[in-house]
């Protein structure tokens, strides 16, 4: 009630932190999901190549 009437928005702190936290979680989630997909694809392909090579031998 005693705040000066400056015309400036001054109730944003929780919104600022929420914005950065939600963005970090979303980007982190996509990055983690992509890394898991990339490593599992690489592993799967390597196993198949190994299996087909040992079959040839």
């Amino acid at each position: 009630m005693n705040e000066a009437l400056t015309g400036q928005v001054n109730s944003g702190d929780v919104f600022i932190w929420a914005s950065y936290v939600i963005s970090a979680i979303t980007l982190g989630g996509v990055a983690l999901w992509t890394i898991i997909r990339m490593t599992s694809a690489k592993k799967k392909l390597a196993m198949l190549e190994q299996a087909s090579a040992s079959e040839k031998d």
Binding site: V30, T34, I35, R37, M38, S40, A41, L45, L48, E49
Partner: peptide, 27 residues
């Protein structure tokens, strides 16, 4: 840069998945 990195990583995963499927079908 973040988008570029995520795009390249996802593309690499997809290409390797397709290579796996193709190789499996061939086998």
């Amino acid at each position: 840069f973040v988008f570029g990195a995520l795009l390249m990583a996802a593309m690499r995963a997809d290409i390797q998945n397709r290579q796996y499927e193709a190789k499996l079908a061939r086998l």
